[in-house]
Design a protein around this nucleic acid. Structure first.
Length: 469
RNA sequence: GGUCCCAUCGUCUAGCGGUUAGGACACUGGCCUUUCACGUCGGUAACAGGGGUUCAAGUCCCCUUGGGAUCACCA
């Protein structure tokens, strides 16, 4: 195992959304490619906003996508004593100081500064305080350099630099004693020996502050790779109003994890003109250099296309396993007396784009009483079809070869014998067996249903037609 | 508003000084076909604008414009 160490560090304030999932994926991919370590760390220092449900939702999402972690999950809420220690160290070294300003005062100052067109930057009121003020609550601020520049060489964006005068003395510990993100992230990435930080580029502006903290603490600064944001169709940051953003919502909408992974990786990363990647290919081909610099729009259409691709090429037995819950939702429980689900799926794969469509398409195989679509029956199950349906049913009874190819021969011979075209018998049989005008190839349907069930359904259709005579 | 980031078809992108600017999704025309699909062949469609540098610029530099991010005792 190399000393490359990557981490995904979500805050448990909601489900795993597609943006976070992609960041996790990039980290996971690089760790796997380089034989490094992938760490999962839950950033729950904000006790008020963090929930256990969110933690579970995130873990569930990670597992669904197959992004297994090597270390963790670590919880920052378990590490508070560690952070306090480092805060004390900074305090003793004069690199941090107590700030007695109240949030309300600060808020006022900020508003005033904004109103006057000045930078909403901490004015440093408490920076020069010599004495501690007893019995007054205080937060702790990092004493940041007031001049000079802080620069870093971002692995995806290139070199980025900030004037230190733009940065203010950020609070590293709240007045209630809990630490703040920009501080804990530095301590953790340093103590967990994270070598490369891959995260969303909304963190770019935090980076110089964090670098200053690394330096003040005497830690080596990791490499940074800031990946672009994912946007909605209106080019605004992706949010709920653009539709589903939770990866688990996509599972529930019938998407396969491999489709989601494939889609996500191609949103912002590319390898020439390649579009389809197996997990193994991704691990093999993934590099940070392949990540683009600009934000990308989430395109559900393309995700859908990929999902269709993976359903079409998926292993029927595995798809059958994944399909079960969707079937149950529809009140169908494939049992031993019905056709084998995996076989049913082979007839449906190339016409379903989601597991939902697959489930809907499989329904008729398992319903003992086929539901006739009104329009379809009106056209294909009328008294006109009575003689043909009857003749076909009789012919089928004597037919031996029940393979799809054999059944095709049956139809050919039947048409010849009756002096009719396929179009005069096929559609009616289809509606008799499936209830609708769009279905898998009729030869396949008959082969899967078997002769008995096919005959039963034909008889029922004949009865139905007979009532119209 | 300050700071930072970004800019090739509608969308995702290839391109890393010399290309008829390629692929994919979507859209669309033909073919295949017992339905619906799949598949297949083809089509429409882009270098934001302006200055440089260079024999040569989508590729390098600058400006403009446009988008985004961030400015918390959130992460």
């Amino acid at each position: 195992m190399s000393d490359i160490r990557l981490r995904f560090a979500p805050s448990p304030t909601g489900y795993l959304h597609v943006g976070g999932a992609r960041t996790a994926l990039f980290n996971w991919l690089l760790a796997r490619k380089l034989g490094g370590t992938f760490i999962l760390r839950i950033e729950d220092t904000d006790v008020a906003r963090s929930t256990e449900e969110s933690v579970n939702a995130i873990l569930e999402g990670m597992r669904w996508l197959g992004l297994e972690w090597d270390e963790g999950p670590f919880f920052q809420s378990d590490l508070f004593p560690v952070y306090r220690e480092y805060v004390q160290k900074l305090l003793q070294e004069g690199k941090a100081y107590r700030c007695y300003c109240t949030p309300e005062e600060l808020e006022k100052k900020r508003e005033l500064a904004m109103a006057e067109g000045r930078k909403p930057k901490y004015d440093g009121s408490c920076r020069g305080l010599k004495e501690e003020i007893p019995d007054k609550s205080f937060a702790i601020r990092f004493r940041a350099p007031q001049d000079g520049i802080t620069a870093f060489d971002d692995l995806v964006k290139g070199s980025i630099s900030f004037n230190n005068e733009e940065l203010d003395d950020l609070i590293i510990q709240r007045s209630d004693g809990t630490p703040i993100y920009n501080f804990t992230v530095v301590i953790d990435d340093a103590t967990m020996k994270v070598s490369t930080v891959i995260r969303g580029d909304d963190h770019i502006s935090n980076t110089p502050r964090q670098i200053l903290l690394y330096e003040a603490l005497g830690f080596p600064v990791p490499r940074f790779a800031h990946v672009p944001m994912i946007l909605g169709s209106d080019k605004a940051r992706l949010s709920k109003r653009h539709g589903a953003t939770s990866v688990m919502a996509y599972r529930d909408m019938g998407y396969l994890p491999e489709a989601m992974v494939n889609y996500l990786v191609r949103l912002g990363w590319s390898h020439g003109d390649d579009e389809i990647f197996s997990r193994e290919e991704l691990v093999d081909k993934f590099t940070l250099e392949g990540i683009g610099k600009s934000a990308g729009v989430f395109n559900p259409e393309k995700l859908l296309w990929l999902n269709a691709h993976y359903i079409k090429n998926g292993d029927p037995a595995r798809l059958a396993e994944l399909l079960l819950p969707f079937l149950r939702e529809r009140g169908v429980e494939p049992t031993a007396d019905g056709p084998v689900l995996a076989t049913v799926i082979t007839t449906l794969q190339e016409r379903a784009r989601t597991m939902l469509e697959l489930a809907d398409g499989a329904l008729f195989y398992y319903r003992s009483e086929v539901l006739y679509d009104e329009a379809a029956a009106a056209k294909q199950l009328t008294s006109l079809q009575y003689p043909i349906l009857t003749a076909f049913t009789q012919r089928l009874a004597a037919w031996e070869d029940m393979t799809p190819a054999g059944i095709e021969v049956l139809f050919k011979e039947f048409c010849t014998a009756q002096g009719i075209k396929m179009g005069q018998v096929g559609p009616s049989v289809r509606v008799a067996l499936c209830g609708v005008t769009s279905s898998p190839a009729i030869y396949d349907v008959i082969a899967v249903l078997g002769k008995d069930e096919t005959s039963r359904r034909l008889e029922r259709a004949i009865s139905f037609v007979a009532t119209q005579l």
